[in-house]
Design a protein around this nucleic acid. Structure first.
Lengths: 125, 125
DNA sequence: GTTCAATATATTGCTCATCAACATATAGTC
DNA sequence: GACTATATGTTGATGAGCAATATATTGAAC
């Protein structure tokens, strides 16, 4: 399980950020873009073409899946007729996200060891 | 300064790892590959073509520079006639490496907040 | 002393992720 | 009715990474 997850690493920055956006709740493409822009204070602002293609690939790779239930629920409540596609993490996607997070943590740790950033920056954790 | 550095983010995983390899000492291409392989336990093993091209780009972007002194010193001491190209971080390269490390730290922090990994994994820091 | 593995750099063709621009349609507001 | 925000999609160009191939030197084993 964790073995398989590590075989799919490393992820691109965008892929990682998409999985991260889906970590706490199901979202649709546009919502993912907005979440990333908000969270990074506009420093990251992926184009729609990039994101929708990445979502296709992530689905093909089994890391995310369309969540029909949420889509239907939204439709019931809001009579939302916009063609939205909601996505959520698959168990595999969650495992890959965790594995990549551990990989990044190891890199950051090494960077701290090498004095790249002040270790006081770690207080936030 | 830090503003400029952030404009060059995010870095690809390979570029980040090359800069990280150069953070503590000057190295040549082959040495960088070996350092990355050793450090990641073979999980990352970039091909020579990829690394030598990346080194060219990093130099063009002003993040690394050839360190003639080290090359000459090595030649003097070891009579090393192999055509080695030693690289070191430029101040700009160091600033970008620091900025990217902070960016990654923020992502990992968020992942921890969202419960992606157990926060006990952070003890290593 | 020559064969062999490790060291060291480089090029080329292919695939794939990203960007920028464009296209389309609906929902909400003024 | 006009305009903005929401929402998904395609297309062409760029550029990073991989795999394969090529070449040359160094060091050790035999």
């Amino acid at each position: 399980m964790q073995k398989d997850a590590e075989a799919q690493l490393p992820l691109t920055t965008l892929w990682y950020n998409i999985l991260l956006a889906l970590a706490d709740e199901a979202r649709h493409g546009y919502g993912i873009i907005k979440e990333i822009e908000l969270r990074t204070d506009g420093r990251m602002s992926p184009g729609t073409g990039t994101v929708y293609l990445a979502l296709q690939r992530l689905e093909e790779d089994g890391l995310i899946a369309e969540s029909k239930e949420t889509a239907e629920a939204t439709e019931r409540v809001h009579r939302d007729k916009r063609r939205r596609r909601w996505y959520e993490l698959t168990p595999q996607g969650r495992a890959v996200l965790a594995a990549e997070t551990r990989r990044l943590l190891a890199e950051v740790s090494l960077a701290v060891e090498k004095g790249v950033i002040d270790s006081s920056s770690l207080k936030t954790l």
